[in-house]
Design a protein around this nucleic acid. Structure first.
Lengths: 242, 242
DNA sequence: ACGTTTTTTTAGATTTGTCTAAATTTTAAT
DNA sequence: ATTAAAATTTAGACAAATCTAAAAAAACGT
């Protein structure tokens, strides 16, 4: 079945807003899609007749299994294209989202699968978000040490090993906190220091000792698919708080 | 300025149909675009108000300079994407047109230019059609000997050196004529024979002697841009009829 | 619990691109 | 030069996706 770009965008937005059991409100959708509540209501009625979502008026909306399948397909395309743009065409990670918003609506399934193969089956996109596989399974969130993060991948600080005042002083000074997006630009074997970059600021160096205490996840907060999440390739590192 | 995919398709179709001074008829456009004449008339009126074409009712239509610029931009994107699909993602040349019909409407100019760079500034697409450069200039048609055609590039037979009955008998037998699309699959240094492929038929071998009498062009019949056509990298081989 | 505010839906309109059927213009033939 | 045929345009309609304004339902505060 083929759906319009507009419908695909609604499904994608609902997927992102739909946390766990919660249904999504009309207003939340209108805000996410930069449109008016009345337009959302109209579209929800159409998507309901296509069995892509469960919708009762005034009760909010949830995706059906089919609707989620479509949404994940769009997200898969979006993230593979982002990966392509950054790693093959040398775009900066901050400029690819907009372009991927268009590319994600290209219909050919064969194209997506070939692209994925061409890229070497990447697990996360340049923003650190997991890339669903062909079956619609989304790789499970992993925590790894910042030193183990491949270069040029944006990830999010999810854990700090040591929680002493000393480390906090340092992190505050460097403006690093949980949720901060970081990217390793270079790894120096000599002293195992790392050159890292945060948002739009110039790159700076952090010591091996500090890096050892910073953990990042590959995801930003996405929900894994139904029952079966894909098992992680690298073993997750458990954070060692004291 | 941004135009809808539909408008871009109209401009592209007019460009392809518009030979030299001739204007394009409503019916010809309707057929090319698989639509009805009435729809074409409607659209032409809209495109005229946008100054993309010259249109007087019952008189047919021609692109303006601006309209041609847009059309060439779409064709440039189409052919670069086709090249990408065939040479990077290993698609067959016969299956890429449909996908490129969608990709050609992706708007980012930076994407196209980066893609072109990534691909190494190719001159012709997998069907042998020339790829316009960033300035909208279209490489000029070149005739080269079939033996000089790179492998895996589709080209069109444009000239036959020897015009004896003998060669014609052979060409008729092998179903080769002017306009036939050929692709060299392999070159054998031992006897300089070539393995070639025509349309969907299985590949077959032709002798050095025959190959020496077959000339192909890199283009299918496209008109070069305004005044300045890009000078060809390889020198064109003049066909040596007797 | 009851009025007020917020959220959501309905009603009616608009834009884009398309269609069919009818009317008009051009072309071509005798 | 008429007239028949072909090509083109007009008129009116429709589907998709959106909007504004008004009505209805739900949630909230005291």
């Amino acid at each position: 079945m083929k759906y319009s770009a507009s419908k695909e965008n609604y499904l994608k937005a609902i997927f992102h807003l739909q946390t766990d059991q919660e249904s999504v409100s009309t207003n939340a959708l209108a805000q996410a899609l930069q449109t008016k509540a009345a337009s959302v209501t109209d579209m929800l009625k159409k998507l309901k007749t296509q069995k892509l979502l469960q919708y009762e008026k005034y009760k909010g909306v949830k995706l059906t299994v089919e609707g989620r399948k479509v949404a994940i397909g769009i997200i898969r395309k979006h993230r593979l294209w982002e990966y392509f743009l950054v790693h093959e065409l040398n775009f900066g990670w901050e400029e690819v989202h907009e372009i991927a918003e268009e590319l994600e609506h290209i219909t050919s399934k064969k194209l997506v699968d070939r692209l994925e193969e061409f890229l070497g089956y990447p697990q996360v996109d340049p923003h650190g978000d997991p890339i669903p596989n062909e079956q619609g399974q989304i790789p499970v969130s992993k925590q790894i040490n910042l030193s183990d993060l491949p270069v040029n991948v944006i990830s999010t600080i999810s854990n700090i090993g040591d929680q002493s005042a000393d480390i906090m002083e340092l992190l505050n000074h460097k403006n690093i906190r949980i949720g901060t997006k970081v990217e390793v630009k270079k790894k120096f074997g000599f002293d195992n220091s790392l050159e890292v970059k945060i948002r739009n600021q110039p790159a700076f160096t952090i010591s091996e000792h500090l890096a050892n205490n910073l953990f990042v996840k590959y995801e930003e907060g996405d929900i894994s698919n139904q029952q079966s999440a894909v098992s992680s390739q690298q073993s997750a590192v458990s954070s060692q708080k004291k």
